[in-house]
Design a protein around this nucleic acid. Structure first.
Lengths: 339, 339
DNA sequence: CTGAAAGCGCTAACAG
DNA sequence: CTGTTAGCGCTTTCAG
């Protein structure tokens, strides 16, 4: 067993071939005779040789590394997405370098700079917005990037999300059909496109029905802030139904409603969330929510990114995937509801 | 704005210095005159130059990349640990290449091989066991590795975990003090040291009190299996208290108990978990559990790994961090309990 | 302190 | 198909 790094040259010597022959044997699309391949493989195994992918990356210009920026992992949607993204990429021969970024703009820019230092082949930015300056740098560096679960005005930027506007509408439609008259909304972080779109869809459906929002609070996608918003909302202007911008907050809202305020769900108040994370299905919450189809979002994201890596000329893609409303027990179910 | 990759040579030319001067300016411990530094920095900024860390890694032999292997992200303990690990490493100038591995032994080995290909400076294996063959390879390759939340017999392998035996004892002590007479246990995956140690500690405390386990089920750390084990256990031999090997399963057990079996917690049955993940504190569960001090576990893991990277001669460290029992409402609280 | 020169381990023409 | 020859972008002696 070798105790130091084994190089292709050593393998070549043992196999009695040139160093480039070894390289070819380990390069997917290269040509080598059956005999060479055999000799090389044998020698390689004997020495425990494996190609140094970093050196390969330096000369080929392809690192097969994808930089993944993610803001927080406490919203359960993200670990799930992260796992699926990593697996999907791994299956296609790419690896993930992970970067945590707080959602303040300044930080992100530094992070992206660091990512670029690694000569990544592409970047996936999950739920973070970056300055247009930064997108320019990436474009200049020729590094494809796709936004996951976030949209951006820049039409040159690829982005994959659920159809948040349609999703917001579905939530409103359901609450309306349930006969609710005083409908409240707890918003996420206002800088997020997901927040804006969900609210926009929700409000326009309401207004199409000739109704307006009864009361509004802001939870910033943060547990504690969502709870605080709930308390304020119910202290002053209690609604009979609340749409919460994501499940992570909706769970907190439900607990506050039930355990602090002593309200019954859905008898006293209906709650609808967004995402359909795993917790939403747990009996303790049984949350009615709009599903974000994580599998399809991930598949789209990976497809878009890799095709742009393989052919830099393909244009930007923006995909919004429609997700169904998952009806459970946290909101009153309208008579004869069945879609 | 440059549209291609800027090299140190181009910066050198613009700054009117040699290429090695540029290299020195961007190498932490190197010497360069104030004037040189200035000229180089200016030229670098003008061109938008940043060193190629991959090329640097090839020649220096140090990639400043840490390979992180993680099995599943659905147990909430892991996203939390992952986030903390990444942040801690990032702060110390390292970056994380993430690998997902199913917990079957064979798979892991391949994954570690892949990690090695990236010339990582170190490996953190979270909750996965690897063949001794593999540990040998890593040692041969000179790559330090530390096990996170898992112990292994091999004394040459560094490992960080909570004190699972002591933790198991605490759970038993509490249940015993609560006057429970028929105590059940729902085990995790039996291949995991955490499972074995928690159970061992639990059982020995029971036996010290002259009591034995009333009933035992296996949940394999999987939601559905934990639920199934719960159903079986309560159909045949209902205990008055259950210790569950981790919170992830304990939550599922609680829901099954309450919503399927119609039992009251803690009136009909007490439940104690292990980990103290975020959900455990939510009012809907309010789970009494043994805390794994994630912050300290992460800090220890990073310290051990980095010190081994900086000085390969330091010997293996095995750390077990003691965590307190967090008393909440899912288990009967003994009269005058106060520790 | 600085430049020249020699690689790191590998891929990619280029002749043969 | 194969070996030879250039590099990739960078760090690191080595003289000066």
């Amino acid at each position: 067993m070798a105790t130091h790094k084994v190089t292709s040259l050593e393998v070549a010597r043992l196999a009695g071939v040139s160093q480039s022959a070894v390289s070819r044997v380990f390069t997917p699309g290269a040509s080598a005779s059956k005999k060479t391949v055999e000799k090389v493989r044998k020698a390689a195994k004997e020495l425990g040789y494996r190609p140094n992918v970093l050196a390969r990356a330096v000369v080929s210009g392809k690192s097969r590394i994808i930089g993944l920026v993610v803001a927080y992992l406490n919203n359960q949607f993200y670990p799930e997405a992260l796992e699926k993204l990593t697996n999907a990429l791994q299956e296609r021969g790419y690896h993930v370098l992970i970067f945590m970024a707080s959602h303040q703009a300044g930080n992100i820019d530094n992070v992206v700079e660091e990512i670029l230092d690694f000569q990544v082949d592409g970047i996936i930015a999950a739920s973070v917005a970056l300055s247009s300056d930064l997108s320019d740098r990436c474009r200049a560096a020729g590094i494809p990037m796709v936004l996951f679960n976030r949209a951006q005005d820049d039409p040159a930027m690829s982005a994959v999300s659920s159809d948040n506007i349609a999703g917001g509408r579905k939530a409103a439609e359901f609450l309306l059909a349930g006969g609710h008259k005083k409908i409240g909304y707890i918003a996420g972080w206002e800088g997020a496109s997901t927040q804006r779109d969900r609210e926009a869809g929700f409000l326009s459906e309401l207004s199409d029905a000739g109704m307006e929002l009864h009361v509004r609070g802001v939870g910033n996608f943060v547990t504690e802030e969502a709870q605080e918003a709930t308390r304020r909302m119910f202290a002053t202007d209690p609604p009979d139904a609340v749409f919460v911008a994501n499940d992570h907050m909706a769970i907190a809202v439900m607990d506050t409603l039930r355990f602090e305020l002593g309200l019954k769900i859905p008898e006293d108040v209906s709650v609808v969330g967004y995402d359909d994370v795993a917790v939403a299905a747990w009996p303790s919450y049984n949350l009615t929510t709009v599903r974000q189809p994580a599998n399809r979002m991930v598949a789209e994201t990976v497809d878009i990114l890799l095709s742009k890596i393989e052919d830099p000329d393909v244009s930007a893609h923006r995909v919004e995937i429609d997700g169904p409303l998952i009806v459970r027990g946290s909101a009153r179910i309208p008579e004869g509801w069945n879609r």
